[in-house]
């Protein structure tokens, strides 16, 4: 993939929820190239999730535009968006005993005709996705029996089976314990190295610091700071956004947040 190409661009996005909700999102500009990892940081209610919902077409912006591979998002069909943008939620409630393989292969839906079920090829792709997240041994386990960390990896595998160029993750690593979190973030880094564009939200600055090249700090529905991680990621900026005294420590070239 040509790194000069811009895979996803959010240009001057504005959004307000209809109804009594006073929240509004203004002036969001994000430009992402293949292989980039961008972190959207900020406290709860600052508008992180709204940005993801706009980016995958779930919400329609009230102003500005979203460009996917240079074309406006609304020019794509739902199916075409599904072939290009994958989404990993924080968690998903599943009431039925799907196997991991059955569940992950649902990610093939954008590539199937309405009357089709996954073919042998789709199953192979799904198995590979499961292997990519290190869950190959669990392919025939039931998703309802997985631990929280395993379930999160399976959600990621489903988005990988979707074979999209862009991956959106909503607080996808926040529930994981340390070992799983490391594994999860390593996989994301590896995916980016292979050319995937990754946009993820998190309220944990350390996670962003670990893998992102760019960061966007949100505050009250507006972008407070944006740019390369090193520039955005200062104690001063974080203190302003989170509204609490913060100290940044650098350990082995990686910034770690301390609060006092």
């Amino acid at each position: 993939m040509n790194p000069a190409v811009i895979s996803l661009e959010l240009r001057d996005l504005r959004f307000t929820y209809s109804g009594t909700n006073a929240f509004s999102l203004t002036g969001v500009n994000i430009r992402m190239r293949p292989g980039q990892i961008v972190a959207v940081l900020g406290p709860n209610g600052s508008g992180k999730t709204t940005i993801l919902k706009l980016a995958n077409g779930r919400l329609t912006p009230k102003g500005g535009e979203i460009l996917l591979e240079g074309k406006p998002l609304h020019d794509y069909s739902r199916r075409e968006i599904g072939q290009r943008i994958g989404f990993v939620p924080q968690s998903e409630k599943i009431s039925f005993d799907y196997t991991v393989l059955e569940y992950v292969s649902m990610g093939r839906a954008p590539w199937l005709h309405p009357l089709e079920q996954p073919t042998a090829d789709d199953i192979a792709i799904s198995k590979q996705a499961i292997a990519d997240v290190g869950m190959a041994a669990f392919a025939h386990s039931l998703v309802t029996r997985l631990s929280g960390g395993q379930a999160q990896l399976v959600l990621l595998a489903r988005a990988l089976a979707q074979q999209t160029s862009v991956l959106l993750l909503d607080e996808a690593s926040s529930q994981l314990d340390l070992a799983n979190k490391k594994r999860f973030l390593d996989i994301l880094s590896q995916l980016a190295a292979n050319g995937k564009t990754i946009l993820f939200t998190t309220h944990e600055p350390d996670v962003a610091a670990a893998i992102a090249q760019k960061a966007i700090l949100m505050q009250n529905g507006a972008v407070a700071f944006a740019g390369p991680l090193n520039e955005v990621y200062t104690a001063q900026n974080l203190e302003q956004v989170y509204g609490t005294p913060i100290q940044l420590v650098e350990i082995d070239g990686r910034k770690v947040v301390l609060w006092t």
Binding site: P89, Y98, L115, Q117, L168
Partner: peptide
Amino acid sequence: LLLRWRLNLLSLDDETALSISVN
């Protein structure tokens, strides 16, 4: 019967169903 596999997709959360092209 023709659409039977797609019924699976409707058991997913709205957000994820939408992200895999479910109308």
